[in-house]
């Protein structure tokens, strides 16, 4: 029992170490994936990754956000209606999405799609010796395979978060327009009044943290795969589960930090 706990602790600590080294090395290599300052046509790979990680996740993120926005509006209205305060649903939805839901919905959707995809792709490259081939050519696998993905995620996750927030709040408007005939003008005025720039900025910072977790956990689980096809399956599952868990853990840590620093207070 104690030995099992110890083993888990050691392997978790080793994972944290691996992730930290990987993060540091990819940060050093990140500029190579940029246009103009980067190397050659490397930025095209980054653009492809933005398409894969970000653009193709647009529909699912939008739909999830709209549905969860509707759910949140209905739940809030069920309570607020009793006090004749249905119109405060606007504030509830706007605050919930700008502070929290936009970023977390995006992160969960992307970790489901991309952490697994990255793990599968990287493990295939390990099995087919493509990473070895890069190494013997004197090329850095981190620079070639990880940096473009990381850059792609860092750029697209904040964008998706903004989109998710927009769709969540739009769902709130649809509900209010249908139930209490709220006009768009009033809705937008109330919504803008309750959105604070600080909330938006902090949420976007969180989405950068989530992007980091998703890409790096996916990559690490992909590298770890050894053995046959069933190992690839296990690796992709581990990537999604661990990435999602770490995203939620990081969300808790960030929110607690903002709370302690007093950044989350209204007004």
């Amino acid at each position: 029992m104690i030995a099992a706990i110890g083993r888990t602790a050691i392997s978790s600590a080793a994972d944290v170490g691996t992730l930290t080294i990987q993060l540091w090395r990819s940060l050093l290599r990140l500029p190579t994936a940029l246009p103009m300052v980067g190397r050659g046509r490397r930025w095209r790979t980054a653009v492809r990754q933005m398409m894969a990680i970000g653009v193709s996740a647009l529909p699912v993120v939008a739909l999830m956000s709209f549905c969860l926005g509707s759910v949140a509006a209905l739940q809030a209205a069920a309570e607020l209606r009793r006090y004749g305060a249905t119109r405060y649903v606007v504030e509830f939805i706007a605050i919930a999405f700008t502070r929290e839901l936009g970023a977390i919905i995006t992160a969960i959707a992307v970790s489901g799609r991309s952490a697994s995809a990255i793990a599968a792709e990287v493990s295939t490259m390990v099995v087919s010796q493509e990473l070895d081939a890069l190494r013997v050519m004197g090329l850095d696998p981190i620079e070639f395979t990880l940096a473009p993905k990381y850059l792609g995620a860092l750029i697209t996750l904040p964008c998706l978060t903004i989109l998710s927030t927009f769709f969540g709040i739009a769902a709130g408007y649809c509900f209010l327009a249908a139930s209490i005939d709220m006009t768009a003008r009033v809705f937008v005025r109330d919504a803008l009044a309750s959105i604070m720039l600080r909330d938006v900025v902090l949420t976007l910072v969180k989405s950068l943290v989530f992007a980091t977790i998703i890409v790096h956990v996916g990559y690490m689980e992909g590298l770890r795969v050894s053995g046959g096809p069933e190992a690839v399956g296990r690796g992709t599952t581990a990537a999604v589960v661990n990435a999602t868990f770490l995203v939620i853990l990081a969300d808790l840590a960030a929110t607690a930090l903002f709370y302690i620093l007093g950044w989350s207070a209204a007004g």
Partner: peptide, 16 residues
Amino acid sequence: RRKIGVAFQESALFSS
């Protein structure tokens, strides 16, 4: 490494 060329068993061509 620049003096050595390697062809791996799995070919290791980049699929993209």
